[in-house]
Design a protein around this nucleic acid. Structure first.
Lengths: 133, 133
DNA sequence: TGTATTATTGATAACGAATCTCATTACTGT
DNA sequence: ACAGTAATGAGATTCGTTATCAATAATACA
């Protein structure tokens, strides 16, 4: 049976108070910085659970790290993510869903999953980057 | 200046004689099995170079491993990949390209990249999976 | 052709993300 | 309150990948 612990709650909350996607590692250090003695393994476990339960969204960064974010929509959706600050916009794309399914079945593939995410620089980071040069 | 070595050539060839995406590790052991004394670090380096030069395609597997494949089309494209055997079909999706660009700019994002890949079971693996049960 | 230059190699160490182990802790139903 | 047992966490472990650095070998040029 599943139990409620302050650790899980802490992870849920830390995730919720974050704008964009974060890695398990950085979430862990954020928690430690705020005085929580939570363990790294626990953060990984909590995030994995949240992802399974649909309370969190996960994706792989371009570098291959797993990133998590509190999920605001129940349904399947995709993301527009800022490479620089992690800001994320959830996007729906029925057209893309249909496209993925049809491409798969056209080639005889079944049980199709798809990974569709757009990475870029958000408006703010675009400005900052320009100024930096 | 860039030099031509048999190692690079061996990686290029091993990659070319492969149907689907392969990891650097498995490409390395394939090479070793055929008697080549090539080093693992060299395989990683060669693959990274090929990817930069556009001679190879790379993507992250669902488990976070980097996979490579000889690139047959020069242009940008996406993949339909069998989760089981690695068989890959290159797909073009102008509609998806346009969608990604417009979604990004609608939200003020610039320099948009996108990750669009479909994973599934190819026809053959679908049959095998059914038989296995 | 010989030689100096220097890119490349490869064994190994190092790294980082993620998972596993297992003794300890602390939820929860009774 | 108590027993049963899910959850925790420090640390070890695994695995993919990158860095180190001395040795090697591809190239330019005399």
């Amino acid at each position: 049976m599943k139990r409620n612990t302050w650790q899980r709650e802490a992870v849920r909350e830390a995730l919720g108070s974050n704008e964009g996607f974060v890695s398990a590692q950085s979430l862990h250090s954020t928690l430690r910085d705020t005085g929580s003695p939570i363990g790294l393994a626990t953060v990984y476990r909590a995030l994995a659970d949240l992802a399974v339960e649909g309370e969190a969204d996960s994706l792989q960064s371009l570098e291959g790290e797993s990133l998590y974010r509190a999920c605001t929509q129940g349904q399947h959706h995709h993301h527009l993510i800022c490479r620089n600050c992690g800001l994320t916009v959830e996007i729906e794309a029925d057209a893309v869903e249909l496209w993925a399914q049809s491409v798969a079945s056209e080639h005889g593939f079944t049980q199709a999953n798809h990974v569709v995410d757009v990475f870029g620089l958000c408006a703010e980071c675009t400005v900052q980057t320009r100024l930096a040069r």
